[in-house]
Nucleic acid binder design. Sequence first.
DNA 1: CATGCCATGTAAGGGGTTACATGATTTT
DNA 2: AAAATCATGTAACCCCTTACATGGCATG
Lengths: 181, 181
Amino acid sequence: MLKYILLGFLNYQPMTGYELKSIIDNSTMHFWHAYHSQIYTMLRKLEDDGLLVSEVDDEADKLNRRTYTITAAGQHELQAWLATSMANVAPVKEELLVRVFFSAQRANADILDELRHQRRLHQNQLNEYRALAPDHLQDRYDSATQRDALFWSSTLKFGIAYEEMYLAWLDQLITTLESQA
Amino acid sequence: MLKYILLGFLNYQPMTGYELKSIIDNSTMHFWHAYHSQIYTMLRKLEDDGLLVSEVDDEADKLNRRTYTITAAGQHELQAWLATSMANVAPVKEELLVRVFFSAQRANADILDELRHQRRLHQNQLNEYRALAPDHLQDRYDSATQRDALFWSSTLKFGIAYEEMYLAWLDQLITTLESQA
DNA sequence: CATGCCATGTAAGGGGTTACATGATTTT
DNA sequence: AAAATCATGTAACCCCTTACATGGCATG
């Protein structure tokens, strides 16, 4: 998946691994994230596969910044992937639900501590998403269109709806446990 | 995480790998899933670590069914894990959002095909969750209490809320794209 | 006697996580 | 001068996914 995220961003304009890391942290974090170690490794692999080319401008800068550019083969692979259909829904993996599922033997006070802690974290997450201007990404790309902004803001809406759902669920469980005090 | 799911279920009663696979498929699938290859491997590892013990009853059955039982060390490790706090929210990984994010160059008709396809899948998922009786798990465990049922049904509520949220988000995006026809 | 389900495993490859490692530039 | 940020990489380990592989039991 990271493969297509990198191809997707580089399809707008050439970038370094560091810039890609920063953009992923600031724009896809509500549905996909990656470590820098993973990004640099994958960029090398995509270059080996002929989907990207890279160059370091030794003259102009000593930081060894390697700028990656998507190739025609890379663009083709990206479009081919986008055209394929997802056979199944992506499975959810939620650690907190594992903990809740096996919580029957724990004291309500301890469970409530953890739930309230999680509630704060998710409230923070929601606040961060809401603080993002709808066009916070558009400013970074010359080639971004109104249509890009439509899809980007749609994924952000998902992130907001997810956190709102999560908070409502937490509140429901917290209220239930409190009423047993 | 699978480690604690296996310990968690075996904390109710001894079981075989096959039974654990079946129970995971029928009860935690909305927040965690695992392949049988992973389950058998992990059970062996947990036995090596002294958290489980297993035996095959050669006399009574030829199916080589290996029944795992949690040890005191395993119970301790499970409780210790439940007592730790999650430092961060679990990151979401949603392939469909990756696709939507990079969809600007695709035709609306193609995107709508995929979104409607996903809508059907998520509607099916929601219907399945709603069809589960609130006590569908309780019947399987002698030692399950009312309190177990409370937490189990709470995680199921999460699954239902998640799918409802997902459908509402899909409908919103579908409507937006349709209005551009 | 064929199909479907019960039952358990191994192996290869891919992807994700954490830690280690280094060094330049910019800001305070 | 110190601290923060920019910038790139490697290595070990673990987990997940897919495929391969085998064989017993039950039902029609």
